[in-house]
Computed example of a mutant assay.
Amino acid sequence: MSSAIAAKTMTQTWQILCTRADLVPYSGVAAWVETPEGPAQVALFYLPGHAQELYAIDHHDPFSNANVIARGIVGDLKGQPVVASPIYKQHFRLEDGQCLEDESITLRTWKVSFKGDEVWIEA
């Protein structure tokens, strides 16, 4: 997967992350994104055919303290797309990062979009 290219930006906060060809439908991939606080690991999920096709949330699982969220199982709970952590199986809503088993835990999310075949993320 491509790393973020800071020189090619839509605005000062948007950056190219990868291309559509780097994504796996109905699955996650991990990527690095440059943020003002420094680099961060992102779990990027591509759900073709859904109203919102692209989601980006923290790759770090706070329950296992491991960077594994992109390897989780994507599914649907109560009409909302979620990912189940591959270690302890907590479910996180892809839309807002909220853990369904523990309301005190929320993963960070980023705005992402396609611009042609490029995937852009707002850091």
Rank of each mutant, 00 (worst) to 15 (best):
P86I: 04
L77R: 06
C99N: 01
F63C: 00
V112Y: 02
A66P: 00
R71D: 15
E101Q: 14
I87G: 05
G75F: 13
P62L: 07
T109A: 10
I87W: 03
Y88G: 07
I105T: 13
S104N: 07
D102P: 00
W110D: 10
D117E: 14
Q52N: 14
V82K: 01
V83K: 00
F63E: 10
V68Q: 06
F63P: 05
K89Y: 09
A66R: 11
L54F: 01
Q80T: 09
R93V: 01
F63D: 08
A70P: 03
C99I: 00
P62I: 00
E95W: 00
H91W: 05
G72Q: 10
F114N: 11
V112N: 02
D102C: 03
Q90K: 12
Q98V: 09
N67S: 15
Q90E: 14
Q80K: 14
G116D: 07
V68I: 13
T106L: 01
R108T: 11
F92M: 03
V74R: 10
R71W: 09
G75Q: 11
E101S: 10
F114E: 12
K115P: 02
E95H: 07
H59I: 00
G75I: 05
R108W: 04
K89W: 05
Q52C: 00
D102S: 01
L100K: 01
Q98K: 11
K111E: 15
R108Y: 02
S64C: 14
T106H: 12
F92H: 02
K78C: 12
H60G: 02
F92C: 03
H59K: 06
R71P: 03
E103D: 13
N67R: 02
L100S: 06
S85L: 09
V83D: 07
G97H: 01
Q98D: 08
K78G: 15
L94G: 12
V83A: 08
H91R: 10
H91D: 10
N67A: 11
E95M: 09
F92W: 08
Q98M: 11
I87C: 12
S64Q: 09
Y55V: 07
R93F: 03
G116Q: 05
V68R: 07
R108S: 05
I73T: 15
I105R: 05
C99K: 07
G116W: 10
P81K: 06
S104Q: 13
H91L: 09
H59F: 03
D58K: 00
A56S: 04
F92A: 09
L100N: 04
S85W: 04
A56F: 06
I87L: 15
K78D: 15
Q80I: 08
P86F: 01
V74N: 05
G79Y: 02
D76V: 14
D58F: 01
L94Q: 08
Q52H: 12
S113V: 12
A70H: 11
V82H: 04
D96F: 07
E53V: 04
E95S: 14
W110Q: 13
A84L: 13
H59L: 01
R71C: 11
K115Y: 08
Q90G: 12
I69M: 12
S113L: 13
S113H: 14
E101R: 07
V82T: 10
L100P: 07
V82I: 15
E103G: 08
E101P: 09
I105Y: 03
K78E: 14
A51R: 12
S85N: 06
R108P: 10
F63A: 08
S113Q: 15
L94C: 06
